[in-house]
Amino acid sequence: MNLPKHLLPTTVVGSYPQPDWLLDRAMLSKSVPRVRMQSMWRIPDAQLEEAQDDATIVAIRDMERAGIDIVTDGEIRRESYSNRFATALDGIDSDNPAIITSQSGLQTPVPRVVGPIKRTRPIELRDMEFLRRNTDRAAKITLPGPFTMSQQAKNEHYEDDEEMAMAFAAAVNAEARDLQKAGADVIQLDEPWVRNNPELARRYAVKAINRALEGITVTTVVHICFGYAAVVPGSTKPSGYSFLSELADSNAQQISIEAAQPRLDLGVLKDLSNKSILVGVLDLGDPEIEPVSVVADRIRNALKHVAPERLVVAPDCGMKYMPRATAFGKLKAMCDAAAKVRAEIG
């Protein structure tokens, strides 16, 4: 399968809402877990994989029905975008977590790095094989980025955090190579934490990203955002990125940004003229399904700053915290808006 040839292809950032029969969504709404939270799943272990498979097919079909060109597996098997991969690596102790306190005083249990980080087995390979078997559309799979994972763990082994981030990058790279062989058309690294510590990110985030993407020949994306709308209210989001232009030096062909909820001034994209851009045109903090006309205006605004052949249309962020009917309605409005603008530009 190859990527769609038409202008303004549509995609999702990664996650889609998990059904309430599969996962306790009230428990999910309280956090973005860094360690494993098996208690979140409603299905007994013996039947959990089959149940996750069934829910994944529902997510894929929803994306296809909405008109999405580049689909994902909805990250249905994950408690969060990063913890499933990070906690499956050797050298990680998530059974005895450390506690990290954020600037706002929020305490979060995080994995401790107690030995050399190594990927000893595939982690998302079956997810990618299942996705490839169940859609004939272009398929994207996401991985947590090495810088972000290094910021979500307590280093008790490496000389410094850069050495730890590069070890995470090697593990991500080994996984990405397997996902590429399994038929991924797009591989995306989620790196939202570059905004939390831009000074540290400037020192080694791009170096770690490039190590993670070494030898990957399919389309690659780096996604950055200000956090899930359900967890980080729009009123607290900045109006600009503290780490963005630096990604021009990354090996990723595409950069994915949140733009709708923070009302981002897209003039910042001039620094990324060598990249294709996934522009977020769905505000996931808005509980209403935006009218097609509103989403179309956001796409037209993006086209003032990005050539149509370099623009991919997407939501701001992952959709897992939203009601499923709302997520589907928003995706349908986005796909209809993309089709409308596509017709206008020929």
Results as ranks from 00 to 15, higher is better:
Asn2Ala: 09
Asn2Pro: 02
Leu3Phe: 09
His6Asn: 10
Leu8Cys: 07
Thr10Lys: 04
Thr11Cys: 01
Gln18Val: 13
Trp21Lys: 10
Arg36Ala: 11
Met40Trp: 15
Asp45Glu: 14
Asp45Lys: 13
Glu50Cys: 03
Gln52Ser: 05
Ala55Ile: 05
Thr56Asp: 00
Ile60Val: 12
Arg61Leu: 13
Asp62Arg: 07
Arg65Tyr: 08
Val71Pro: 04
Gly74Met: 02
Arg77Ser: 05
Arg77Leu: 05
Glu79Tyr: 12
Ala86His: 15
Asn96His: 15
Pro97Tyr: 03
Ala98Arg: 07
Thr101Asp: 06
Ser104Trp: 07
Gly105Asp: 06
Thr108Phe: 06
Ile117Met: 07
Lys118Pro: 00
Arg121Asp: 02
Arg126Trp: 08
Asp127Thr: 01
Arg133Phe: 00
Asp136Ile: 02
Ala138Trp: 12
Pro144His: 03
Ala153Leu: 06
Ala153Met: 15
Lys154Pro: 01
Lys154Tyr: 03
Glu156His: 13
Asp160Val: 00
Asp161Arg: 12
Glu163Cys: 01
Phe168Asp: 04
Ala169Phe: 03
Asn173Met: 13
Arg177Phe: 05
Ala184Gly: 11
Ala184His: 08
Gln188Arg: 02
Asp190Glu: 14
Leu200Gly: 01
Ala208Gln: 04
Asn210Thr: 09
Arg211Glu: 15
Ala212Lys: 02
Ile216Gln: 09
Thr219Cys: 06
His223Pro: 00
Phe226Asp: 04
Pro233Gln: 13
Ser235Gln: 13
Leu247Gly: 05
Glu258Trp: 09
Ala259Ser: 15
Ala260Asp: 02
Asp265Ala: 09
Gly267Val: 05
Leu269Ser: 06
Lys270Pro: 00
Lys270Leu: 00
Leu278His: 15
Val281His: 11
Val281Ile: 09
Leu284Ser: 02
Gly285Asn: 11
Pro287Asn: 11
Pro287Leu: 07
Val292Gln: 08
Ser293Thr: 11
Ala296Ser: 12
Arg298Ser: 07
Asn301Phe: 11
Ala302Val: 07
Val306Lys: 00
Asp316Lys: 10
Thr326Val: 15
Lys330Arg: 11
Ala337Met: 08
Ala338Asn: 09
Ala339Ile: 04
Val341Thr: 00
Val341Asp: 03
